[in-house]
C-alpha cells in the first residue's frame, strides 16, 4: 500500500511481505469439523439455544448448513447456552473474553495432558469448555427438578448430566488434539468409548479419534476407523470431516 505519505517500507521488506500475502486456511478435515461445530452452536430450529448471541432465534430449516441430527440437537442446547453465555458479553459490551477466560482457567486441562512440552497449555476457548458450562445448566444438574411428579424432568436432568460428562471427556480429547498431543487425544477418546460406548457424542468421539490417528501419522488406522464410521453412521453430519481426516475417497 502506498496510499499515504508516510515512510515507505524498504524494497526488500516489501518483497518479503509480498511473499507472505497468501491466505492459508485449515485442512479440509478441520474445515468440515468447524462447520459441524458451528451447526451445533448456532440457534437450533425453533430457538431455545441462544447460541448465536443476539441473533434472532428461529428455524434453521432450509439452511444451507446440513440438517441437524439428534445428537447435535442435544448438544446444541448445551453448546448454544455456552456460546450465548460466553459470546454475548463480548459482543454487547465489547469487553472481550473475560468470561471465557474465567471458565477456561477452571478447566484443568493440564491434569489430563501433563506430558505436553510444547509451551503454554492450549487455550480452551469456548465452546470447547462445555463441561463446566454444561454442568451449570439447570437441567443438567441431577435433582434440580423441582416438581415431585417430574420423572420426565429427572430423566432429562440425568441425560443432561451424562451429556455434560461425555462432553467433558471429549473436550479433553479436542484440547489435546489441538495441541498436537495425539496420544492424549486418543487416550481421552478411548476413555469416552469405554464409559459411553453408545453415548450421545459417540460420533463426535469417532471424528476426533480419526483426526488424532491421521495427524499422528497412523494413516492406515485412521482410514480403517473412518471406513467403519461411514458404515455405522452413513447419515452423520460429521461424515465429510471423518472421511477427509481418514483419507477416504
Amino acid at each position: 500500500m502506498s496510499d499515504i505519505g508516510t515512510d515507505e517500507l524498504p524494497e526488500d521488506v516489501a518483497k518479503l511481505l509480498g511473499a507472505a500475502k497468501e491466505l492459508r486456511g485449515p485442512s479440509d478435515a478441520v474445515r468440515a469439523s468447524m462447520k459441524a461445530r458451528l451447526v451445533a452452536a448456532l440457534p437450533p430450529p425453533g430457538g431455545g439455544g441462544g447460541g448465536g448471541g443476539n441473533a434472532p432465534t428461529g428455524s434453521a430449516g432450509g439452511s444451507t448448513f446440513p440438517r441437524v441430527p439428534a445428537w447435535v440437537a442435544a448438544a446444541t442446547f448445551a453448546a448454544g447456552l455456552a456460546a450465548g453465555v460466553l459470546v454475548r458479553p463480548a459482543i454487547v459490551g465489547g469487553g472481550g473474553l473475560a468470561p471465557n477466560v474465567e471458565v477456561a482457567k477452571t478447566t484443568d486441562v493440564a491434569k489430563t495432558a501433563p506430558s505436553v512440552a510444547t509451551g503454554p497449555v492450549a487455550a480452551t476457548l469456548v465452546p470447547s469448555d462445555l463441561p463446566l458450562v454444561a454442568s451449570a445448566i439447570p437441567v443438567a444438574t441431577p435433582g434440580s427438578a423441582t416438581s415431585p411428579a417430574s420423572a420426565t424432568a429427572a430423566t432429562h436432568a440425568n441425560r443432561g448430566s451424562d451429556l455434560a460428562a461425555e462432553r467433558a471427556v471429549l473436550d479433553m480429547a479436542r484440547t489435546a488434539l489441538n495441541r498436537g498431543d495425539h496420544a492424549n487425544a486418543l487416550a481421552a477418546t478411548a476413555e469416552h468409548e469405554k464409559k459411553y460406548p453408545r453415548g450421545a457424542l459417540a460420533e463426535e468421539r469417532e471424528a476426533i479419534a480419526v483426526r488424532a490417528l491421521s495427524e499422528g501419522g497412523r494413516k492406515g488406522e485412521a482410514k480403517a476407523r473412518a471406513e467403519r464410521f461411514k458404515k455405522s453412521h452413513p447419515e452423520s453430519i460429521l461424515l465429510p470431516a471423518v472421511l477427509a481426516a481418514g483419507g477416504v475417497e
Partner: peptide
Amino acid sequence: VHERDLEDVAHETFLKVYAELD
C-alpha cells in the same frame, strides 16, 4: 493466535459474525 488455538478462536469469531450479521 497460536497455531494450536486457531480452530477454537476461528470458531468463536464466526459465532460472533453470525450474531452480528444483521
